[in-house]
């Protein structure tokens, strides 16, 4: 775990309101253990926004890292105004990683919105390891996509309004791919309704699934105890600590679907 001043290499809008930033962060990049991990970003030095913003690592090559972020408010707007050569201060790498499939599994990677970031990182790991895999990317509309719909290469896009790829949610192609593969293994990150649907589907079908969840964080390192998610069947303990709730920053952000529940 390091705090590092990272030099921005590139920062550009890759789709409507969706940005990709790449920066040099050799200490953190070197310490990174794999897809799923996140960093905690300080966009500005003043204290109007005291807290860092946690963001999944979208790529890592040993000296550089990248993130994908959506313009939401003040802090992400400030991030989007950064130019190559500017600095951001980052803390990381934080959290756990996706754990890998066994040899005969077919990984189905599912990313929704900016939840695509750790999924692209995992896709890179699949490619590097020469693992046959599929990827499904969901968005509301075509202008939020920055990857092409190429079913021949097992890249499936969906849009809520039908303007790109398949019309509807990621569940359409996911259900088909699960039916077509003998040993599917789902990896997903995205908005909560998407994760809820995937979790229910994977439990009903008895398919292994790992979900990277989002949580509001204070510190990212376990100090504030703010970023909890309820564990599945966690209520049994009367007087307990971290039996009912899990800390997303330390235990997560990646969980087996069966281990957590959404409120």
């Amino acid at each position: 775990m390091h705090i590092e001043k990272a030099v921005i290499i590139s920062n550009s809008e890759v789709a409507h309101q969706i940005w990709e930033m790449k920066f040099e962060a050799p200490m953190i990049a070197k310490a990174s253990k794999g897809a799923g991990e996140f960093i905690n970003i300080l966009a500005m030095e003043n204290w109007q926004n005291p807290l860092r913003r946690p963001m999944s690592i979208a790529s890592s090559d040993g000296t550089t890292l990248s993130i994908i972020y959506k313009i939401f408010g003040e802090v992400t707007t400030i991030l989007s105004n950064k130019r190559p050569g500017d600095y951001i201060e980052i803390l990381g790498p934080l959290g756990n990683t996706f754990s890998h499939w066994q040899n005969d599994h077919h990984p189905i990677l599912v990313g929704g919105g900016v939840g695509l970031a750790p999924i692209l990182n995992l896709q890179h790991e699949c490619k590097s390891a020469g693992v046959d895999h599929s990827i499904i990317i969901g968005a509301r509309s075509a202008n939020e996509h920055f990857i092409d719909h190429e079913p021949d290469r097992k890249i499936y896009l969906t849009t809520d309004d039908g303007t790109a790829g398949e019309s509807g949610t990621v569940m359409g192609p996911l259900e088909r791919l699960v039916a077509d593969n003998t040993k599917p293994y789902i990896y997903a990150c995205g908005p909560e309704p998407m994760l809820v649907a995937i979790r229910e589907f994977s439990l009903a079908q008895n398919i292994p699934a790992q979900l990277s969840v989002e949580s509001y964080m204070g510190c990212g390192v376990g100090l504030c105890q703010g970023c909890v998610i309820p564990r599945q069947n966690g209520e049994i303990q009367h007087h307990s600590y971290h039996q009912k709730y899990s800390l997303v920053c330390l235990d997560g952000p990646v969980y087996e679907a069966e281990d957590i529940q959404f409120v």
């Binding site: 204290w47 005291p50 807290l51 509001y216 105890q225 970023c227 909890v228 998610i229 307990s240 709730y245």
Partner: peptide, 15 residues
């Protein structure tokens, strides 16, 4: 021991 409150537990506010 105490589990603490259900989420959401924290939110940033001005300064």
């Amino acid at each position: 021991p105490r589990e603490g409150n259900p989420p959401p537990r924290i939110v940033e506010t001005p300064s």
